[in-house]
Every structure is written in C-alpha cells, then in structure tokens.
C-alpha cells in the first residue's frame, strides 16, 4: 500500500467511529449490576413508615423496582407509562422514593396516581447508591431469584415497555 494513504485511512476509521458515536448517548452509563443479585435493603414504607419494604419479600416473583422522586421532572414524564403498565397487571412495579420529602411524595402520588403496590423510602439515597442509581428515574427488572436482569436509565416510554420490558418479563416468568 502507498504509505501516503496512511493518514487518509486513519482518518476514515476515525470518521466511522465518530459517525457511530453520534448515535450513542455518552451520558448513559451501563450498570455493572445487571446479571448480579439485587442488593438487599429494608426501608420504611412511604404509606406506613412502621413497616419495612425488602426485596426478600418478593422472592419468586418477577418485579420492577422504580426509583423516583416528586422533584424529578423525568418521573413526571414516565408516570403515565407506569400507570398504564400497572393497570395492565403484567408486572408489579415497586417504587423507591429517592431523596424526597414524605409529604411532597404523598401529595405527588395523590395528584398523579399511584402505580405502586408498595413504595419504599430512601431518604438518604443509600439504596440508590447500592443500586448504582445516578439520576432518577431509573427502573430495574428483577427476576424470581432476585437477580437484576435489566436497567432502564431515564424515563420509561411505551416503546421500551412494549419491546424490552414486557418480553423480558414474560421470558423471566416462564423460567
């Protein structure tokens, strides 16, 4: 090969990568926890602070864990999707109220509806750190053995639910 073509070849490779890079979101960080056991916690429940909510109670079920907060605008965006999903009864969504004020969280759920059978409270953000949450909303799909199978970063949309979450839930249910 003509060695004067070398700069051009290198440049073409770089351009291809940059082109692929345009489609990627540099701010989305894949979780190393997918495929690992969901970290344990026992947090007070939002509606009943005296009772604790723990993933151990959900062994044998496929469920979603949704981190949200009343101050988070993305949560407002995804809320109708969660309501729809909850109504369909395909999979239970458990909430984790992340770094929030109790009264504001209650008011928020009252106003927009509550898709969660149980909401845990993570006021110090420690559960969030254990789950590798870096920005709410984030949603985890957890299987019957308590292993994280999928993590959604940012708001859920109907498309993701229909194409990713529900097929995955069906597959996990059948195992």
């Amino acid at each position: 090969m003509n060695r004067f073509l070398l700069p051009l070849s290198i440049f073409i490779v770089v351009v291809v990568f940059l082109g692929v890079g345009l489609k990627l979101n540099p701010r989305e960080i894949p979780s190393p926890l997918v495929g690992k056991a969901a970290p344990d916690f026992s947090q007070p429940q939002l509606y009943d602070p005296a009772t604790v909510f723990s993933p151990a109670d959900l062994k044998g079920k496929v469920w979603l864990l949704n981190f949200w907060a009343s101050w988070c605008s993305g949560c407002r965006t995804e809320h109708p999707v969660l309501m729809e999903l909850a109504k369909s009864g395909e999979v239970p969504i458990f909430g984790m109220d992340y770094k929030d004020q109790r009264d504001e969280a209650l008011a928020w759920l009252k106003r927009w509806g509550n898709p969660y059978p149980v909401v845990g409270v993570d006021d110090a953000g420690r559960v969030g750190i254990n789950y590798g949450v870096y920005g709410v909303p984030e949603t985890y799909v957890i299987d019957k053995q308590g292993v994280i199978r999928y993590k959604q970063i940012g708001p859920l949309d109907p498309d993701t639910v229909a194409k990713k979450i529900l097929p995955l839930v069906k597959q996990l249910e059948s195992q």
């Binding site: 960080i29 894949p30 979780s31 190393p32 926890l33 750190i129 254990n130 789950y131 590798g132 870096y134």
Partner: peptide, 8 residues
C-alpha cells in the same frame, strides 16, 4: 464504587 457504577 466500581461494583455499582462500573469503570466509568
């Protein structure tokens, strides 16, 4: 930290 957030 890496266990939770990866090498990022």
């Amino acid at each position: 930290l890496v266990a939770r957030y990866g090498d990022f």
